[in-house]
């Protein structure tokens, strides 16, 4: 077997706010191989986001080990973490987290501003446009987030996550506040990316969204409750076709 993209060994995260200790994650061991497409599910407060933040190198474990691509992240300093985030990880946030009053293409360019060695401006623009094209938003490149729908903003966020050609795409509830059709379209993009070999880990609350993934990890109270492969996997293209047909039927009657 090759080196896992993600390897958690007895990962724990404890938040201390004043007197209270919150054990958000209480010992998770998990291994994700290159090319996997994993959904993390669980009730609110079960520690999903906490885990995602650690996987995204935004945070370090309180105890236990997290190896990203074989590198022990717990031992890295702030700058090294920033470099890892920049080179290896694309992060799609639940609330999109785009820069306001900044055009789509400039939002997508953002990670490249901090690339080392620096990327020439022309190449930044070209790569950002390619990335937007990949999520089907090339025509809207000069729109600011306030001029885009939620689904379109999510696409921009995905394009930004992809622009530095990461090994790993992390998405925290990428379909959280999207209608079902747009959700399926987003999952379609993820499936395409996964088919190209990108490892994807995403958090979702919705069972039918999880069925577009290949593997589902369920958490409860900071622990993994189940970890199974998906049977009867949905394919976004088929589901969309079905949806089209249904909508047509509704309009016909």
């Amino acid at each position: 077997m090759s080196v896992p993209v993600i390897q958690l060994e007895d990962f724990r995260k404890t938040y201390i706010t004043g007197e209270v200790e919150v054990k958000a994650v209480r010992g998770v061991s998990l291994s994700i191989q290159p090319g996997e497409f994993v959904a993390i599910m669980g009730a609110s407060g079960s520690g999903k986001s906490t885990m995602m933040n650690t996987l995204g190198c935004l945070d370090r474990p309180t105890s236990g080990k997290f190896l990203l691509d074989g590198v022990n992240v717990g031992e890295l300093n702030r700058d090294e973490l920033a470099d890892l985030r920049n080179r290896k990880i694309g992060f799609v946030f639940q609330g999109f987290n785009l820069l306001a009053r900044t055009s789509a293409v400039e939002n997508v360019e953002l990670p490249m501003l901090y690339s080392r060695p620096p990327i020439p401006a022309a190449e930044q623009r070209q790569r950002a446009m390619e990335s937007l094209a990949l999520v089907g938003l090339a025509k809207r490149y000069d729109h600011t987030p306030s001029q885009l729908s939620g689904g379109q903003q999510q696409r921009v966020a995905i394009a930004r996550g992809l622009v530095n050609r990461p090994k790993l795409l992390l998405a925290d509830e990428p379909t959280g506040n999207l209608d079902s059709r747009t959700s399926i379209e987003i999952m379609g993009i993820f499936q395409e990316l996964n088919d190209k070999g990108i490892t994807i880990v995403m958090v979702t609350h919705e069972l039918d969204i999880a069925r577009y993934c290949r593997r589902v990890v369920v958490m409860r109270d900071g622990l993994v409750r189940s970890d199974e492969l998906v049977k009867d996997r949905f394919l976004a293209s088929e589901e969309l076709a079905k949806l089209d047909a249904e909508q047509k039927a509704v309009q016909l009657t």
């Binding site: 700058d79 985030r85 785009l98 820069l99 306001a100 953002l110 990670p111 690339s115």
Partner: peptide
Amino acid sequence: TREIGIRLAVGARGRD
């Protein structure tokens, strides 16, 4: 602050 958070999240170092 949020903008700073976004920049840090996509790989800006403190000194950037």
